[in-house]
C-alpha cells in the first residue's frame, strides 16, 4: 500500500516535472529536422546546416556568454568586497532591510528604469544638458541598445549583486568565518592571508553552485535584453523567440534549431553541476 502510494507520487513528479520538458524538447527537435511544422515536408538537415553556416547561434552564444560572465564577475566581486568591508554595518536592522529591497524589483522594471536613466533623452542625458556638456540628445553616448551591452550588464549587476551580498553575509555567519579569522590572526596570519586563505576559499566553495546557476540564468535572460539589447547580435532567448515568431516559415525551424542547441547546452551544464554528488561532509 505504502509502495503504491509512493509510486503514484513519483509518477505525479514525472508527469509535472519531467514530461513537459521532454515533450518540449522532442517537439523542438522534430521541428528542427523538418519532421513536423506547417511548411516542412519531411526529414531534412537543411535547417541545422543553415544555422551552422550562418554563425548566428555562435555569435549570439558568445555575446550572451560574455555578458553573463562580465555581469556575474562584477556582481560576485562587488558582493565579496562589500561583505569583507561592510559586514558589521550591514547587520544593522535598517541596512539589512534596505539590502532586501532590490530583490523586489523584477527584470522588466530594472530594464525600464535603466532605459529611463541612460537613454539619449534619459535622466543622465538631461543632467548633461543642464551642465552644458551636451547641446542635443544625440550627443549623449550610446549606453542602452548599445554594442557593448552596457545597459544590460548594469541591469544584471544591480539585480543580482544584492542577492549575492545577502548570500555571502549568510554564509559568513553560518560557516563561522569570523571565528576562523580570529584564530588565524592569533596564529600569526596577517589581514591579506586571512582574506586569501580563509574568507575567499570558504565563501566561494560554499556558493559556487549558486554562482554557476545564476550564470546560466543570465545566459537565458529575456526581459532585460529585450528592452536594452541591440538588433544584432542578440542574447540567446531574444534570438530564439524572434526566430520562432517569424512570418518566414523556414526561419521558424531555424529558431527551433537554436532552441535545441541552447537546451542541450544548459542540460549538459545541469548534469555537470548536479550529477556527480559527492558524499556530504557530515550527516544532516
Amino acid at each position: 500500500m505504502k509502495n503504491r502510494t509512493n509510486n503514484f507520487i513519483i509518477s505525479l513528479f514525472i508527469a509535472i516535472g519531467v514530461i513537459p520538458f521532454a515533450a518540449a524538447f522532442v517537439y523542438a527537435l522534430l521541428y528542427s529536422f523538418g519532421i513536423i511544422g506547417i511548411a516542412n515536408d519531411g526529414f531534412t538537415t537543411a535547417f541545422w546546416s543553415a544555422v551552422w553556416s550562418s554563425g548566428t547561434f555562435f555569435q549570439s552564444f558568445l555575446y550572451s556568454f560574455s555578458i553573463a560572465l562580465v555581469s556575474i564577475t562584477l556582481s560576485v566581486g562587488g558582493a565579496l568586497w562589500a561583505t569583507l568591508k561592510f559586514r558589521k554595518q550591514l547587520e544593522q536592522k535598517f541596512l539589512s532591510f534596505i539590502l532586501y529591497l532590490p530583490l523586489a524589483v523584477p527584470g522588466i522594471v530594472t530594464g525600464f528604469f535603466t532605459f529611463q536613466l541612460f537613454s539619449k533623452s534619459g535622466f543622465f542625458s538631461r543632467i548633461g544638458y543642464q551642465m552644458g556638456w551636451i547641446s542635443q540628445p544625440s550627443q549623449f553616448p550610446d549606453l542602452v541598445n548599445d554594442v557593448f551591452a552596457f545597459g544590460i550588464v548594469l541591469s544584471f549587476v544591480t539585480m543580482i549583486m544584492p542577492f549575492f551580498l545577502l548570500l555571502f553575509l549568510n554564509v559568513y555567519k553560518n560557516e563561522r568565518v569570523e571565528e576562523l579569522s580570529v584564530l588565524a590572526q592569533a596564529l600569526g596570519a596577517n589581514a591579506k592571508q586571512v582574506t586569501q586563505r580563509i574568507f575567499l576559499p570558504i565563501l566561494i566553495k560554499k556558493t559556487w553552485v549558486i554562482i554557476v546557476l545564476y550564470f546560466i540564468f543570465l545566459l537565458g535572460a529575456y526581459e532585460v535584453p529585450l528592452i536594452l539589447g541591440q538588433e544584432s547580435p542578440q542574447m540567446l532567448s531574444v534570438l530564439i523567440i524572434q526566430e520562432i515568431k517569424q512570418y518566414d516559415l523556414d526561419r521558424i525551424s531555424e529558431g527551433y534549431v537554436i532552441a535545441v542547441m541552447y537546451t542541450l547546452i544548459v542540460s549538459v551544464a545541469a548534469i555537470l553541476l548536479f550529477l556527480p554528488r559527492r558524499k556530504p561532509a557530515y550527516e544532516t
Partner: peptide, 23 residues
C-alpha cells in the same frame, strides 16, 4: 530524480514556453 527536476528549472522560461506552446 533531483537531476531531472533541474532541467526545467534551469531552462529559460520563455524558450520552454515557446517549445510547449503547441501542446
Amino acid at each position: 530524480l533531483t537531476l531531472l527536476a533541474y532541467f526545467p528549472y534551469i531552462l529559460a522560461p520563455v524558450v520552454f514556453a515557446a517549445c510547449l506552446s503547441f501542446f
